[in-house]
Amino acid sequence: MSFWAYAFMQRALIAGALIGATAGAVGVYVVLRGFSFIGAGIAHAAFGGVAIAVLLGMDPLWGALLFSLLVAWGIVHASRRGHIREEVAIGILFASSMALGVLLLGLVPGYQTDLFGYLFGNILAVGPQDLVASVALTGIVFVGIALFYKEFLLITFDPGMAEAQGFPAGALQGGLLSLVALTVVLSLRVVGAVLVAALLVVPAATAYQFVRNFHRLLLLSAALGVGEVVAGLIISFYLDVPPGPTIVLLSAALFGVALAARRR
């Protein structure tokens, strides 16, 4: 039977395409700003929020949203105050948030499978309301990028210049990291917290091998993200293997090919 015959597969493919586009586009900023570790940090930190929401009987996405946004702005605040280095702040925040999540979920009997699902994605878990949330989050991210295109470009390229021109560097940094946070929340269901970090880096890094124009880089990276997630989902369906790792390994392989092609 074709993969499109299953309603869960249709939902997964639509959600997956949205994630691919969002992570691909946001990933360009992550890669150019050297934020790779921050993306991973926010993704893991979201997990603490998931656990709290589950304990409170809320939709886990709200917990993830709250926690990842808190961590995003926490990182900006900590690094701007200058007391601790950025990566130290992330290291502490994400490890403790994750530990909190594992500890709390341990208190809820029968939640172990879901824990695994949030870490590595669970394609069967994409329900109709998740699809609505995916469309909304993708919309917010792309409207954000379109509206503040010039501001985000400036803060990514030259924060000193942004400040000198009167733009609030901290708020812009926080805005960019908020886009990362939204992308992470969006991806939790399908690829999971651990693997979204890869989606934030690999498509952008692959596109960067071919394009040296910021605007085209955004478009190509988003397109690569869509293609990789969709292809990964279909491959995993036919091979009957977990989709998250399939997607990540497929994008990593494509990056390898791109790198080799450029070396030539």
């Binding site: 150019l32 470009l153 400036l154 390229f157 942004a162 021109q165 124009n213």
Partner: peptide, 21 residues
């Protein structure tokens, strides 16, 4: 020093940033 020389921008794009303020 703070600027990544491999950033994917053309010279004119960089100069245009001077107008952002």
């Amino acid at each position: 020093e703070g600027i990544d020389p491999d950033f994917p921008l053309r010279v004119i794009d960089v100069v245009l940033m001077g107008r952002y303020g």
